[in-house]
């Protein structure tokens, strides 16, 4: 891990140049620039709100205003999902450069995540602004809770960087990883509480499986890092509350494990990557 950080610090110019180039390229020829990145979750938010709340009347009182509740979950999920999707092909798309210049190739997945982070921060600002103007009765009224966004974003970045390093290296060796990941992310979307809260899962599980099974199921769901992230972001933005300690602990452990494991997997494949390209 230490050598990874040293390599990244040594090539910070390259990292900055890559992020800058990706940001420019992604907004080249688009008048709306980064706004395109948040348009997708905003459109999805409108669709889910219309279907779940307006048509089916499933928006719970605790989740009102439901569009803001949805938007928080969708923006967080999009950052994680896009980081994973980009990392699958990031090494293959830069194959020619990998074979023409000597540089630590791990900057490529890291730069892809950092580029996504810039878009995510833009989206997060929009979410926070919307939540300030459209506040529900459940909101505590305290905005100090927004300060928790700083460590939350840090943990989320660690988590996505770890996943991206592992997936980018495996993506070079395993040819159908993209197809499989698309399905996995679709399942992850519905299992992650983007459209609902963990409290609803616990309630439904208790009602159907008994008092003992509910908390157990909720605990298993908390193993999904996106579920923990969504819960934490909603506490900070939507409810204006302190993120529960269990969420901090779980998130810190998941981020740490992902980063260390992702780094180990990348290091294991690193010298073979050029041979598989």
């Amino acid at each position: 891990m230490r050598s990874t950080l040293t390599n990244l610090l040594k090539r910070r110019d390259l990292l900055a140049a890559l992020v800058s180039a990706e940001l420019r390229a992604s907004s080249a020829g688009m008048r709306l620039g980064s706004l395109w990145w948040v348009l997708d979750p905003i459109l999805m938010m409108l669709v889910y709100w219309l279907v779940l709340d307006v048509l089916l009347g499933r928006g719970r009182e605790a989740y009102q205003p439901f569009p803001v509740f949805l938007l928080v979950g969708l923006v967080v999920f999009k950052h994680v999902a896009s980081g994973i999707e980009r990392s699958i092909t990031v090494l293959r798309t830069k194959e020619a450069l990998i074979k023409a210049a000597a540089f630590p190739t791990m900057v490529l997945p890291v730069a892809a995540v950092l580029t996504g982070l810039v878009h995510f921060l833009f989206g997060l600002v929009i979410v926070v602004v919307v939540s300030l103007f459209w506040r529900g009765e459940q909101h505590s009224g305290s905005y100090a809770a927004l300060l928790q966004l700083v460590p939350l974003v840090a943990f989320q970045t660690m988590l996505v960087v770890g996943l991206a390093m592992a997936i980018s290296a495996i993506g070079v060796v395993v040819q159908d990883l993209r197809a499989v990941t698309t399905h996995v992310m679709r399942v992850a979307f519905w299992l992650s509480p983007c459209l609902y809260g963990l409290d609803l899962v616990r309630e439904v599980a208790e009602a159907r499986l008994g008092d003992a099974a509910g908390p157990v199921l909720a605990t298993y769901l908390a193993l999904n890092p996106i579920a923990v992230l969504n819960t934490a972001y909603r506490e900070a933005i939507f409810y204006g509350q302190g993120v529960p300690l269990w969420a901090w602990g779980t998130l810190a452990a998941q981020a740490g494990v992902c980063l260390l494991a992702g780094n180990a997997i990348y290091q294991h494949h690193d010298r073979r990557i050029i041979k598989f390209l």
């Binding site: 090539r11 110019d13 390259l14 900055a16 140049a17 890559l18 800058s20 390229a25 020619a96 023409a100």
Partner: peptide
């Protein structure tokens, strides 16, 4: 000098590509 100009980003200008390519070359 292997594979000159490989990896240029087509959406960026020549000047912007110089910055990225130079960063790759250290």
């Amino acid at each position: 000098l292997l594979g000159l100009g490989t990896g240029f980003n087509k959406d960026l200008t020549g000047r912007e590509n110089i910055r990225t390519y130079a960063a790759f070359l250290g």
